[in-house]
């Protein structure tokens, strides 16, 4: 199998994945997205790959590349719809609500004045989050109306247009930890707890990770959450609510795991690589049976030719097309 692994910065995770692909006998080509020119009308030399495995650190670059490649029939991991849903906290919330997966209560407004009302419907304290963002950046716990007014004004004046959406989430009075479950191919394969005395329990903010048992409830909830967003591979963050039990907080489509392999004893990178190869194999078999690569079908798309594209639009990233 020939896998293109797109990236923008090559971190420990990407190195671990390259090694895992090579150990499994795959032909993996790391491609630095920052040096690529796409032709949206043609796969060009991308057609030599059986699948594209996205590991870009930049969401913008991920969305740009996967939109083009998937539209041209390339199987991308994760699929575009899953990335779009995971990347946007409101979209994730909607997917979880639609599928009955328990998640914290949320209120949404598009202006500051109803934003205060949204916050007060939940009560203090509550949590304000940018709908798009990661690693706990700009996530704020709002303890009273003064803080709410202040944060909303700052966001209105200093933030980008995306920050004008008020996404307020109920504050969960959790123990000093949250839980992350890694789900690959529909199966929960590993779980960690992230402990911190700070209310934010992102490891990017200094929380300490430790492996934990995957209980049947954790497995069930995290697998349902990943199914709700349609991801092949994802990490599900869960909170323990004293009243409602486990709640799915967020789902990450391009997970970090460098510390989780040692703390859980699970070779997450190897399982991820193997699942990617299985997907690529299935897609290649399907394409061979159908006589070519077909654009991914979505209900809103007009019919598109399934003919394999020509030779323009070559990837030219580091290590590409050697």
């Amino acid at each position: 199998m020939r896998i293109a692994m797109t990236y923008t910065r090559l971190r420990v995770e990407e190195r671990m994945l390259i090694d895992a692909f090579e150990d499994l006998g795959a032909d993996v080509t790391p491609i630095d997205l920052r040096s690529v020119v796409f032709n949206p009308a043609s796969l060009g030399d991308w057609a030599r790959y059986d699948a594209v495995f996205d590991r870009s650190l930049s969401l913008t670059n991920t969305l740009t590349s996967v939109r083009i490649l998937e539209s041209l029939g390339m199987r991308c991991i994760n699929p575009l719809h899953a990335i779009e849903t995971c990347a946007d906290k409101l979209a994730t919330t909607l997917a979880l609500i639609r599928t009955g997966v328990p998640t914290p209560e949320v209120r949404v407004a598009v202006e500051s004045e109803p934003g205060i009302e949204a916050i007060e419907q939940l009560g203090y304290p509550c949590v304000l989050k940018p709908t798009v963002g990661s690693w706990g950046r700009l996530v704020s716990r709002i303890n009273d109306r003064d803080a709410a007014e202040s944060i909303l004004e700052h966001r209105e004046v200093l933030g980008s247009v995306n920050h004008s959406v008020v996404y307020a989430q109920e504050h969960i009075n959790k123990p000093d930890r949250d839980i992350r479950v890694f789900v690959v191919g529909g199966n929960a394969i590993a779980a960690i707890e992230r402990r911190s005395e700070h209310w934010l329990t992102n490891t990017a903010r200094g929380a300490v990770a430790a492996g934990m048992e995957i209980t049947p409830e954790l497995a069930d909830l995290s697998q349902r959450a990943v199914a709700a967003v349609g991801a092949d591979i994802a990490a599900v963050d869960l909170l323990e609510c004293p009243r409602r039990g486990l709640l799915v907080n967020e789902i990450n489509h391009s997970m970090e795991f460098r510390n989780s392999t040692t703390t859980t004893g699970v070779e997450i990178h190897r399982i991820v690589a193997q699942h990617t190869l299985d997907i690529a194999q299935a897609h290649a078999s399907q394409a061979a049976g159908d006589g070519g690569i077909h654009p991914v079908e979505r209900a809103c798309d007009a019919p598109v030719s399934g003919e394999r594209a020509g030779s323009a639009g070559a990837p030219s990233g580091e290590g590409a097309l050697a």
Partner: peptide, 10 residues
């Protein structure tokens, strides 16, 4: 290495 950008993350 560059500072973390707004759209970086998991």
């Amino acid at each position: 290495a560059p500072e973390v950008e707004e759209d970086w993350g998991e």
